[in-house]
Deep mutational scan, measured.
Amino acid sequence: NQASVVANQLIPINTALTLVMMRSEVVTPVGIPADDIPRLVSMQVNRAVPLGTTLMPDMVKGYP
């Protein structure tokens, strides 16, 4: 099973992602692959992302 990117904390709308905000976890449904975490750094979320939420491609501005 492939690990996905999961919010490690509440991420407010328009926040630029940092490594501490994300963790990898095997979840269903599958979200953004954990391998993409380095690419996500400094990209902004377009909505508030609660703790434990799987990051989906449509939540991150400019992804992929």
Rank of each mutant, 00 (worst) to 15 (best):
N1K: 14
Q2W: 14
A3D: 06
A3V: 07
A3E: 12
A3T: 11
V5P: 01
V6G: 01
V6W: 02
A7I: 06
A7R: 00
A7M: 05
N8A: 15
Q9M: 12
Q9S: 09
Q9V: 06
L10I: 09
L10G: 10
L10M: 13
I11D: 00
I11R: 00
P12F: 06
I13H: 09
I13E: 15
I13A: 15
I13Q: 14
N14K: 09
T15R: 06
A16V: 09
A16G: 15
L17D: 00
T18Y: 03
L19Q: 09
L19A: 14
V20D: 11
V20K: 07
M21S: 06
M22F: 07
R23A: 09
R23C: 04
R23V: 06
S24K: 13
E25V: 14
E25C: 04
E25N: 08
V26A: 10
V27S: 05
P29C: 04
V30K: 13
V30L: 15
V30P: 14
G31R: 02
G31K: 01
G31C: 03
P33R: 15
P33N: 08
D35H: 15
D35Q: 11
D35L: 13
D36S: 08
P38V: 10
V41F: 05
V41I: 11
S42I: 03
M43I: 04
M43F: 10
Q44L: 10
V45D: 01
N46M: 13
R47H: 08
A48I: 12
V49K: 02
V49Y: 02
V49M: 06
V49Q: 02
P50S: 09
P50L: 12
P50F: 07
P50K: 13
P50C: 05
L51A: 10
G52S: 06
G52V: 01
G52I: 02
T53F: 11
T53V: 14
T53D: 09
T53M: 11
T54Q: 03
T54P: 08
L55Y: 00
M56L: 14
M56T: 12
P57C: 05
P57A: 14
D58K: 08
M59T: 05
M59L: 05
M59V: 05
M59F: 13
V60T: 01
K61N: 13
G62Y: 06
G62L: 08
Y63H: 05
P64I: 14
P64Q: 15
P64Y: 08
P64T: 15
